[in-house]
Design a protein around this nucleic acid. Structure first.
Length: 991
RNA sequence: GCGCAAGUGGCGGAAUCGGCAGACGCGCCAGGUUUAGGUCCUGGUGCCUUCGGGCGUGCGGGUUCAAGUCCCGCCUUGCGCACCA
């Protein structure tokens, strides 16, 4: 290796010159020390150079930016962070944690020769952006764009190696053109549950035109039995709405008057409030846009097996989808045409069903209750003191409708209900069982009705106990099971036979299968699957979102705006604020702000459908902010493409399925493809991550993308918490103004704010706890490289950990020592020597290379930094640092602290950026030691140590150890055994 | 209540297979540089100790020559779900 011995700065290098130093440094004896000011100059200079040279531009194989010669046969790597919302408050030090981690990972892989795509855009539509605008009295476009400028500056200051050409924002018409286009793809599709997919699975999205053709030709019967040709456009539209993947329906939706908009189930907390703003949410019947995500429930659940995600997040998604196997069984109502359909996961316990329960909202409830008084012999406890079943049911339903979700919950396990006065027939044994209404059965799950089996279900047991209902055990409880409790475990079926079928003696699984077969054969029921997942409510009564590319004709039929007319631009309006109401006014109705813009709403268009120019009304709802984040990662791949949302070749290159499936995938699983590494917070586990998977699968079915999953590997990073302080009233006080008072007797420090004592806690960084630490102030006080190294050294990425500003100096000292190993602090000269490495240094260097190149790909940045510090400290102790060691160390530090690495790399005589310098490779010969310290134990406790050759034989080692004086002394009474694990350990066990 | 994850120095955290517990950093202690403070540098730093050693990875048991690591029971904290039939 031949390098200039002295730095001769290349003309274009960003290298800081002597004359750039600050006045106070000229007074000092170490004017060339790596200080915060020095770091600042270096960092800004290199950020400029990166931008000028397009250092992080990733070549595409196809599309407008095609550079196939630069792509070559390099392996690709797509590394992304979750789409950030450009907050008006700016970033705090918790935000960049993930961004820095992906950057280190991306930079490391560039040094291994991969074609790495890493970039970041802005999720700029949506409620928070709009609320911020309303608060500040400015148009959301203005505030959002201003926020993006601030955030871009903050991110740039951190030295993130993003391909800046690919920075997109959801609010750009060029972007939301394609969001609307994808919406129309979904609108114009239906889910054919019987269609065979190329991968052999069953069920996929197909164009709606194909369905229309099948209806028209008679190949597929029109639901309801009508003849397609004779249906009116409105009737056809209604039929298709039952098939489309995006459709309007009149259904109970989540209405938050305080927010002025409806919300999806995923945006409502389980205590019935809005996730954003914590407003009460009410169920109201409204015509709204829905997405048929339920069609994909199975694939969304199954395909989790093929992605590399945290188990916790997979569990959360599976839980949300809530798939359970069971059976539907019909119970005919006595003296009535109707049957009550129930869903049960325990059809094996049918013989133990002793009563039934309907949800208060169940449509049959009203007609079930017989006119007149209570049936003969009705238990007084069942009547709630009402004179008749109809009165009792009406009173109960009214009471239930007035209860909020919270009330239903806080009432806990105390079951309430009333008898409807009706009986139904248990199909397996002909027994007539009473039918109740009770709010422990939920309308939103299964069929909204259950068969109650108190012997095998705790909830039913509680209800039966309270209302004195019979209990029939149909599963033999295990020995010692209390008599007064339901038995939900495994056991042999008992009391379960009729003239045709007997389950007695069967285990649960066999009994289920047997009874389902019998029910199916008799036409009384069938095996089925039930899901918790509901269709996705997709409209919002908000201004700041993508307009729907939909117009309604005078009959009220929805029509897609033709692709050629996209985008449907969001009109600029003077009044963009949503109409909000008293948060508790459940009778209020949403009013979309776009509805106020008459001249935008009423249009005359030729949709190109042969009907010529006609009058239409535009859809005035807007899309939820999830729309933009459902596909942004695809746009990164080809942001300048005007012919397609992404060129298929670019999608296949960056995201296509890989040869080998992820670790842990089932045997023989096909790889789904997707982003190679996706890092973001776990708060999106069932929102963004589920919605994006759904859209991706639709796009896959329609042939637009080759990958089946958007995010092949997802990693959820922990949060950074910061100390927060409260005064005696419990009010947070400004954390930066708190003074620590050390306890001199060795106890814990106490804290004061403006002289008064305050208590400390650790919490989420933010305005509400007044504990914001901004990356800007860290960059100013220490430099971006120091901030990066500190954040990456705090601990494992997945853990939440406390921020400690005073500990940041440790990272700075490391970089300062690194600098000093290369640059003379007094003269600024490069001080490395062109001398060969001594043996110890060579070994230390290669051990570090080995460890670090195992840590970087597994996101073990904290341990990588520890090893780099060790090596750096070892070099510090040498009289002079050999060039080879310095250069390799600089290259290894570059992913973590890229600016100082670039500067040192340049001063060491390299003209090219260090970004693509090859990562050092460890020499295996230098990883094996000649001699090893052997630990000598007596009964498992360390008693001595011994330097031995690494290749020593077991016998020789045993002999040497037994000859040691300490061992001799310890084994005077004789030896029971000697365990030898050559060369590292010998354990002697005396008698 | 159910499910999952985690409990290691004063603090953040290290520790492929069961094989030297506490890497690295903060803090703290001592020394050096400095008029002084800070910065910076060097060294030390689990606890106890009669200086032999003893005790130590939430608690109690077990397996093993050997346990932070494996098994059983419990406690605590965090997260998720929460009448889902």
């Amino acid at each position: 290796m031949s390098r200039p011995g002295r730095w001769t700065g290349p003309a274009r290098a960003a290298t800081v010159r002597h004359d750039a130093r600050r006045p106070e440094d000229t007074m000092s004896e170490t004017p060339h020390r790596y200080t915060a000011q020095m770091a600042q100059q270096i960092e800004l200079a290199w950020q400029d150079r990166w931008q000028e040279e397009g250092t992080f531009h990733a070549p595409n194989p196809a599309g407008p930016w095609a550079e196939p010669e630069k792509v070559g046969d390099r392996e690709k790597l797509l590394v992304l962070d979750m789409f950030p919302y450009p907050s008006g408050a700016g970033l705090h030090v918790g935000h960049p944690l993930g961004y820095i981690a992906t950057d280190v990972f991306a930079r490391y892989h560039r040094m291994t020769g991969k074609n790495v795509l890493h970039c970041l855009g802005y999720d700029a539509f949506g409620l928070p952006a709009e609320q911020y605008a309303v608060q500040t009295g400015q148009h959301p476009r203005k505030t959002t764009e201003a926020n993006m400028v601030v955030m871009k500056r903050q991110l740039r200051r951190l030295g993130l190696g993003h391909d800046d050409r690919r920075t997109i924002a959801t609010i750009d018409p060029d972007y939301y053109t394609w969001t609307q286009w994808i919406f129309l793809q979904i609108f114009n599709s239906w889910y054919d549950a019987d269609a065979v997919r190329p991968d052999g699975g069953v069920g996929r999205a197909r164009p709606i035109d194909e369905l229309v053709q099948e209806f028209a030709s008679g190949a597929r019967p029109v639901p309801g039995g009508a003849d397609w040709v004779s249906l009116s456009p409105l009737e056809r539209s209604a039929v298709l709405d039952d098939f489309r993947l995006a459709y309007t329906s009149e259904a109970p939706v989540n209405w938050a008057p305080g927010l002025g908009t409806v919300l999806s189930n995923e945006e409502v907390t389980n205590d019935g409030r809005s996730e954003r703003g914590n407003y009460p949410v009410f169920k109201t019947n409204l015509r709204q846009w829905m997405m048929r995500i339920t069609a994909y429930a199975d694939r969304l659940a199954d395909d989790l097996d093929r992605v590399d995600w945290p188990d916790k997040v997979k569990a959360m998604q599976r839980n949300w989808i809530g798939r359970s196997q069971g059976a539907r069984v019909a119970f005919p109502v006595v003296g009535h045409d109707a049957s009550i359909e129930v869903f049960t996961t325990r059809p094996d316990t049918l013989f133990g069903a002793t009563f039934m329960v309907l949800a208060p909202e169940h449509p049959l409830v009203e007609s079930l209750a017989p006119a007149g008084g209570w049936p003969e012999g009705t238990n007084a406890a069942w009547t709630a003191g009402e004179p008749s079943p109809q009165a009792a049911v009406a009173a109960y339903r009214l009471a239930a409708s007035r209860k909020s979700e919270i009330e239903r919950q806080t009432e806990g396990k105390d079951k309430t209900g009333v008898f409807t006065g009706a009986f139904a027939t248990n199909p397996v044994n002909g027994q007539q069982v009473p039918v109740f209404v009770a709010d422990y059965v939920l309308m939103g799950y299964g069929t909204g009705a259950i068969m109650a089996v108190p012997a095998q279900d705790e909830r039913d047991w509680d209800f039966a106990a309270k209302y004195e209902l019979p209990v029939v055990r149909t599963v033999q409880p295990s020995e010692g099971h209390p008599e007064d409790q339901a038995f939900t475990g495994e056991g042999a079926a008992i009391n379960s036979s009729n003239d045709e079928v007997s389950l007695d003696g069967m285990a649960v699984a066999e009994a289920k299968a047997t009874i389902i077969d019998w029910l199916s054969a008799k036409g009384l029921g069938e095996g089925t699957v039930s899901y918790k997942l509901r269709d996705w409510l997709f409209s919002r009564q908000r201004y700041w979102g993508e307009p729907f590319p939909i117009v309604f004709d005078e009959d009220g039929v929805a029509h897609a705006v033709p692709d050629s007319m996209l985008p449907v631009e969001l009109p600029d309006v003077p009044d963009y604020s949503p109409k909000t109401f008293d948060p508790d006014d459940s009778s209020s109705q949403p009013e979309p702000p776009l509805g106020r813009v008459q001249e935008w709403v009423d249009v005359e268009l030729d949709l190109g459908d042969g009907r010529g120019v006609r009058k239409y009304r535009r859809e005035t709802n807007t899309m939820p902010n999830w729309a933009g984040s459902c596909w942004y990662y695809l746009r990164y791949l080809d942001p300048a493409n005007h012919d397609a949302f992404v060129d298929p070749a670019n999608e296949a290159y960056w995201m296509g399925p890989q040869a080998a499936p992820v670790a842990g995938a089932p045997e023989g699983a096909k790889d789904p493809g997707g982003v190679d590494l996706y890092i973001g917070g776990v708060e999106h586990a069932v929102l963004h991550l589920l919605y994006a998977r759904f859209w991706h699968k639709v796009l896959h079915d329609l042939g637009h993308v080759s990958s089946e999953e958007p995010f092949r590997k997802y990693f959820s990073q922990g949060y950074i918490q910061a100390p927060a302080y409260r005064d005696h009233r419990g009010q947070p006080v400004e954390a930066s103004e708190v003074v620590e008072v050390p306890d001199h007797s060795g106890g814990e420090s106490s804290y004061t704010w403006q002289g008064q004592p305050v208590t400390r806690e650790f919490g989420k960084i933010g305005k509400s706890l007044k504990n914001v630490v901004s990356p800007d102030e860290m960059c100013e006080q220490y430099g971006a490289d120091t901030l990066r190294v500190y954040e990456m050294s705090m601990g494992p990425l997945e853990l939440s950990k406390p921020w400690e500003t005073r500990a940041v100096v440790g990272a700075q000292r490391f970089l300062q020592r690194l600098w000093r190993n290369v640059v003379d602090e007094e003269t600024g000269e490069v001080r490395v020597v062109d001398a060969p490495l001594d043996d110890a240094t060579a070994r230390a260097l290669h051990r570090t290379i080995d460890a670090v190149s195992r840590d970087f790909p597994t996101l073990g940045f904290n341990t990588a930094i520890a090893r780099l510090i060790e090596l750096n400290n070892a070099l510090t102790k040498l009289d002079a640092v050999p060039r080879e060691a310095a250069e390799k160390l600089v290259v290894m530090v570059a992913p973590l602290a890229p600016h100082i690495a670039e500067e040192l790399w340049s001063r060491l005589g390299h003209e090219e950026t260090v970004t693509y310098a090859p990562f050092p490779v460890a020499d295996p010969a230098l990883l094996v030691e000649d001699t090893v310290t052997c630990v000598v134990q007596v009964k498992g406790k360390v008693r001595d140590r011994l330097e031995v050759p690494a290749d020593i034989s077991e016998d020789a080692l045993r002999e040497q150890v037994l000859a040691l004086p300490k061992i001799q002394a310890a084994t005077e009474g004789g030896i029971r055994t000697v365990i030898v694990r050559a060369p590292k350990l010998v354990n002697v066990v005396p008698l």
